[in-house]
Amino acid sequence: MTSPVGLIGLGAMGAGIAATLRHRGYELHVCDARPGVAAAFAEQGGVACDSPAQVAAACEVLVSVVVNALQTEDVLFGDQGAAAAMKPGSVFVMCSTVDPNWSIALEGRLAALGLHYIDAPISGGAGKAASGQMTMMTAARPEAYDKAGAVLEAMAGKVYRLGDRAGAGSKVKIINQLLAGVHIAAAAEAMALGLREGVSPEALYEVITHSAGNSWMFENRMAHVLAGDYTPLSAVDIFVKDLGLVLDTARATKFPLPLASTAHQMFMQASAAGFAREDDSAVIKIFPGIELPSATSDEKKP
């Protein structure tokens, strides 16, 4: 028998993680800030809770899959927050993309309360979260791994242990996001040029995905553009935030990031133009003088 696991945040990634843990035999206690979301999940198995505190009271391993540091602060220390309800020795697993220095400080704050902490950002998208094949970039003290290591392995296909203190996981994640953001921006620029020059977008996609210029982000995100489907799996504003974290980290040591800076400005432009909550591939909409493929009912986003 496994001990119950708590999970807070049932968005695209969190819902997939929760489904994976449920499939692998864990009793899940879940909550989400949106009304009815936890109850809908629990209809297929699990326990819906009204607050992070209620989840924390029932579980010694608590996984947080919310958007950013501000939401994580609210999960832990807000009204009905988890920190005050967690039993001493419990583990808080933080899966958001955050400032590494904030993550380092959070480890100390939780240690002062007798709680363990795992700095554990995730990558791979909603599909890999749901199939248990996502990647986790983790850093924690050995005693945190001792208590929650089996849960991490159940959640992900790859669990990298990058250090025995918080911070390294978040640093590696923002470097990953630097590449992801630049690759999406470059993919959008390439597809936009093809459209401007009158190249068939389907033909361009076919050639590039079988050529040296391909990237995972081109193959994945430009499929969304071809389908004319900008339903957000990862929204434009996620990269406004994440590339902002990348630039803030580099700025602290006066390290130049010219490509990341340009990509950040592209996502900022897309957000300001009204595409903030659309799929991040909507960054292509900032390019003038092109006609984008329109949605068709029989095409679905991968």
Score class of each variant (00 low, 15 high):
45 G>I: 05
134 M>Y: 06
220 N>E: 12
272 A>N: 14
234 S>K: 06
245 L>R: 06
181 G>I: 03
142 P>H: 00
146 D>P: 09
9 G>P: 01
205 Y>L: 12
32 D>A: 15
46 G>L: 05
56 A>W: 01
275 F>R: 03
232 P>K: 11
205 Y>K: 12
261 S>R: 13
228 G>W: 09
156 A>V: 10
7 L>H: 14
240 V>G: 07
46 G>F: 06
286 I>W: 12
148 A>D: 05
30 V>S: 05
55 V>H: 01
27 E>N: 08
114 G>I: 02
180 A>I: 07
294 S>H: 03
78 G>W: 02
110 L>Y: 05
189 E>L: 14
101 N>L: 10
167 G>E: 04
147 K>H: 11
177 Q>S: 08
64 S>A: 00
105 A>Q: 15
161 R>W: 06
284 I>A: 02
70 L>W: 01
215 S>G: 02
241 K>W: 04
116 H>P: 00
23 H>M: 05
218 F>H: 11
268 M>T: 12
243 L>H: 04
231 T>H: 12
277 R>E: 09
298 D>M: 03
192 A>E: 07
105 A>W: 14
231 T>V: 11
24 R>Q: 06
181 G>V: 06
121 P>E: 03
101 N>A: 10
125 G>P: 04
123 S>W: 12
18 A>S: 12
239 F>R: 01
152 L>P: 15
70 L>R: 05
60 E>R: 11
179 L>N: 10
16 G>M: 09
257 L>T: 14
107 E>D: 00
30 V>D: 05
232 P>F: 13
195 L>N: 10
120 A>R: 02
9 G>C: 00
233 L>F: 06
169 G>C: 01
62 L>P: 08
137 M>K: 14
91 V>E: 02
10 L>K: 09
30 V>I: 07
3 S>H: 07
154 A>W: 07
47 V>G: 09
26 Y>L: 13
216 W>Q: 01
105 A>E: 15
202 E>G: 08
237 D>T: 03
158 K>T: 07
49 C>M: 07
68 N>Q: 10
56 A>R: 01
302 P>L: 11
36 G>M: 05
121 P>M: 01
272 A>M: 14
4 P>E: 08
254 K>G: 04
142 P>E: 00
116 H>A: 03
180 A>L: 04
42 A>G: 12
156 A>Y: 12
208 I>W: 07
139 A>Q: 09
41 F>C: 01
276 A>C: 14
145 Y>L: 10
